[in-house]
Design a binder for these strands. Structure first.
Length: 289
DNA sequence: AACAGATCCAACCGCCAGATA
DNA sequence: ATATCTGGCGGTTGGATCTGT
């Protein structure tokens, strides 16, 4: 099996990145920036191909990565955008600040896809069917699509990743902002904000490798707002594209609204067309699904 | 406790388009 | 015009982890 042209060199390491490699890449990029990825391995002292460095940085190490479970608003956007543009993950990711195409693709391929393919549930998990129930391409759900997106079936509970913004450069426990008690409520305040001093710390590395599961048990999942928090780095980046306003995508029939005050995506705000956002999003669902 | 199957997700593969020689 | 390089993208894989029995 052939490798990509940039990866044909001897001694090119493959597989999971070690904390030492991460540290080298972070230090190089943060001090020199990235211009030509093919030069990065040599200059950073890495035995990886440039393509691998680029992927590692873009999908995992860059500081404005937003980790943690997807909010209901993000899920709705993903479904809507996928209905509009299909498997154009990079385009979909461009509507979700801090999310990567790879993450969205993985997410879609895991439980969203299963939800859509799921047969209409005879008995919804959290409530009995009402007259408001609608038959959507995704089965029977209550009129509240947020509930649909929040609830998992008994067989397929929603993937509950930790609501922790994290990168080796910047980690923030978003749950703590709301002051709701996690089951590890004895956490010290100084543990809520993590700026790893030693990037080669095994703890830091394992935290990233395992989607920071160490900080909160799954029982801490209770709110849709926690993962909407964006740390300063990301907020700053969003200022350059405009906040508190609807942005129409030129390539698909979707809108993105970022409410700076609420610190959340979407919501029940009214779109410029005066139509309800949810209605607008639902209207772009492909009828064939 | 041990095992098997299911699930997750980081990383790789191969293709493509644009830039450059 | 052609070859090569590079970045970007979507599809896929396989090891780690989770879950059920």
């Amino acid at each position: 099996m052939g490798h990509h042209s940039c990866c044909n060199q001897q001694k090119v390491k493959r597989g999971l990145w070690s904390p030492e490699e991460d540290e080298k890449l972070i230090r190089y990029i943060t001090t020199h920036g990235y211009g030509c990825w093919s030069e990065v391995p040599d200059k950073a002292g890495l035995q990886r191909c440039g393509k691998s460095c680029r992927l590692r940085w873009i999908n995992y190490l860059r500081p404005d990565i937003r980790r943690g479970r997807f909010s209901p608003e993000e899920e709705k956007l993903i479904i809507s955008l996928h209905g509009a543009v299909g498997n154009r993950w990079a385009h979909i990711a461009s509507h979700l600040p801090g999310r990567t195409d790879n993450e969205i693709k993985n997410y879609w391929n895991s439980w969203i896809k299963k939800k859509i393919n799921r047969k209409p549930a005879p008995t919804p998990v959290t409530s009995k069917p009402t007259s408001d129930d609608q038959h959507t391409p995704f089965g029977y759900y209550t009129s509240n699509q947020v509930d649909f997106l929040n609830q998992g079936s008994a067989a397929n509970p929603p993937v509950v990743q930790e609501t922790l913004f994290s990168s080796p450069l910047f980690m923030f426990d978003t749950n703590s902002l709301e002051g709701h008690n996690a089951t590890d409520g004895n956490k010290r305040p100084d543990e809520l904000f993590h700026e790893p001093v030693g990037l080669n710390s095994d703890q830091t590395w394992h935290i990233n490798q395992q989607q920071v599961q160490a900080f909160h048990p799954r029982a801490s999942f209770s709110s849709s707002m926690d993962s909407n928090y964006l740390p300063p780095l990301l907020e700053n980046s969003m200022e350059s594209i405009g906040l508190n306003e609807w942005v129409e995508c030129q390539q698909c029939p979707s809108f993105l609204f970022w409410d700076q005050a609420e610190g959340s995506l979407g919501g029940e705000e009214i779109a410029p067309s005066s139509s309800n956002m949810e209605t607008m999003l639902l209207s772009s669902y492909p009828s064939s699904l």
